[in-house]
Amino acid sequence: MSPVSWLSSHLGLPDWLLRPILAPLVYPGLLAFMPVALFIIWAERKVTARVQMRVGPLYVSRRLGGVLQLLADGVRIAFQEVIVPETAEKYSFMLAPIAAFSLVAATFTVVPGGPGVYGFDSNISLLIAYALISLSPIVTVVMGWASNNKFSQIGAGREIIVSIAGEVTLLASLLAAAMMYGSMSFNAIVEAQNDAGIPGIVANPVAALLFFIAVLLITDRVPFDLVLGEQEIVQGPYTEYTGILFALTMALDYAKLYVLMLMFTNVFLGGWMPFNTPLIGSLCVFTKTLVLMLISVFLRSVYGRMRLDQVAYLFWARLLPLALAAFSLSAVMHFLYR
């Protein structure tokens, strides 16, 4: 008996109604996301410090290596005043971060976090997740425009160019994977990998690489963080935000990273592949996602920022032809998952 059906029998609610509420709120959604964000941001700062031969955050909870630093920052930010600039468009300025974060949080309903742990299953859940993720850059552009600040507007302009380039590559790699498995449902994809015993990254490494690089671009990770571009345009579209709204904009990128890496785990790493019970399977998915996130934040200490034209060239002229190669590879590898 799964935890969801146990809860539904106690609350007297039907299963299908409880799942889409629990998935975005508990696991793999926001409740699981909080410690992940806490840990990942700490790890990012600590690893970068280590590579640069520094100590990194340490003052808050010295015995734990400063892991509670972000909690302290969060408390400070939560009690900070939210300042709305006089020239800003008040309502879109205040509502845009909330809308963007809700869109990303809604994605958790379709992405499974373990065997039988999902909001709802559909034949096109891959496309639904992709559509929700790719809606949030539009809201980011609204943020940049509503702030009425030159840095925000430059950042919003960059977001347009960058997100189109990234999402085409992301969609191409996802469609290549869907073609290989012959399905667009996450559960069916993981089951196909389970039955064949081969994770997708082995069968189609090109699509996996494309997906990973596109995720780095979409979530503003370091070689492609030119939307934020701290040294050039302060904080990009998020420049004017303070207090809890700033925390939301910051959490937005990490939530996107979390949900996209969850998708990577399901599509290319076989999800809960060696295990099949809900609890251990979920832990397996969670661990794989965390390791992927650690790899992507580790890149911050290795690379510098690429220029806008270099990024556009890389994605349109180098990675898009590779996507065609991924498609042809999928057509060949399709026999594995029949």
Partner: peptide
Amino acid sequence: RLTKSPMT
């Protein structure tokens, strides 16, 4: 570099 101790 990850394996080396910090120099600060």
